[in-house]
């Protein structure tokens, strides 16, 4: 078993190297830190919250104070506590829906992009069919048909965002299969499997990681919209659902709307900054080229 050991050692040093490169980009490191902090705050919510998400003990509609740093809501709950617990469902929807979208969209995009011809024609028609409809419309439609329990919501969001993933992966495969190194691999008689997984995929990976990260942020935004419209699972506290509650008290209690909105904004920003960092990391010349134009 000496081989796995040496393998894992080289792998950790490689991932450490990737991390170092990510932190050298403009925003990548910030994005990763935001994601880790926000996830940790939600995952360990009981440690940071003063009360449970359903504890109604405090006086209602109190402005931010030392005791309630983010105020209390119309039901007398500590907004900070609800916010921390609500992050769990919002982030879970983000991660799970993005993963699901990647599995569906990535597979379809890769198959269409590599095989082209009739396969691509059929797969792209299906993708177009779904992509024709805006994500929020698909989600609203499926929620109105199937109901809005938590996992149905995740599935609805994934169903709405996979076409983007398919398009991006398809685009990558189309460009990359034209490249010299793929032509060379073909000419050398390497197998289709080898070409897809060892030649094309590693080169498409940065773009794919970026897209998955962006998908997660889209999913969080869609959930927020659904919650805001009062159509998310009413039994699960989420940031969108908090905003729905806050809308009624916009003039009386701005803190009920502003803080959940900020939480959404920060989480989405985390995913987007991370995506931006990865883009820059694998395209290092991009930022160095602009000044040269002056010469």
């Amino acid at each position: 078993m000496s081989v796995p050991q040496s393998l894992s050692r080289s792998r950790t040093s490689a991932s450490r190297d990737l991390l170092r490169r990510l932190f050298r980009t403009r925003f990548g490191g910030v994005g990763l830190i935001i994601l880790v902090v926000v996830s940790a705050l939600s995952a360990f919510a009981p440690w940071f919250a003063s009360s449970g998400p359903m504890d109604l003990g405090s006086p209602a509609l109190q402005p931010p104070s030392w005791q309630h740093p983010l105020g209390t809501d119309s039901l007398g709950r500590d907004v900070r506590s609800v916010l921390l617990y609500a992050g769990r469902s919002s982030l879970t929807i983000g991660f799970c829906a993005a993963a699901m979208a990647f599995l569906i969209g990535g597979t379809i995009g890769a198959l269409a992009g590599y095989f082209r011809g009739a396969v691509a024609a059929v797969l792209l028609r299906v993708t177009d069919l779904f992509h024709t409809l805006p994500a929020i419309i698909i989600v609203l439609f499926s929620v109105s048909l199937m109901g809005s329990s938590f996992w149905l919501q995740v599935a609805a969001v994934a169903l709405a965002i996979w076409p983007i993933e398919a398009r991006i992966v398809y685009g990558q495969f189309i460009t990359l299969t034209e490249r010299e190194f793929v032509l060379a691999a073909r000419a050398a008689g390497l197998s289709t499997f080898h070409i897809i997984f060892r030649e094309i995929l590693p080169n498409a990976l940065p773009t794919v990681i970026v897209q998955v990260s962006l998908d997660a942020s889209t999913a969080i935004l869609i959930e927020a919209g659904l919650g805001f419209l009062g159509l998310s699972d009413p039994t699960v506290p989420s940031w969108g659902e908090m905003l729905n509650r806050g809308q009624e008290f916009l003039e009386l209690a701005w803190w009920m709307s502003v803080f959940p909105g900020m939480a959404i904004c920060i989480a989405v920003l985390g995913f987007n900054l991370f995506a931006d960092g990865v883009t820059e990391m694998f395209n290092p010349r991009a930022s160095a080229v602009a000044p040269k134009l002056d010469s």
Binding site: L221, L243, L250, C265
Partner: peptide, 13 residues
């Protein structure tokens, strides 16, 4: 990046 991260309806609010 910040603008891109804000929920549509929240910007409106």
């Amino acid at each position: 990046l910040i603008g891109y991260a804000m929920p549509t309806f929240w910007v409106g609010q």
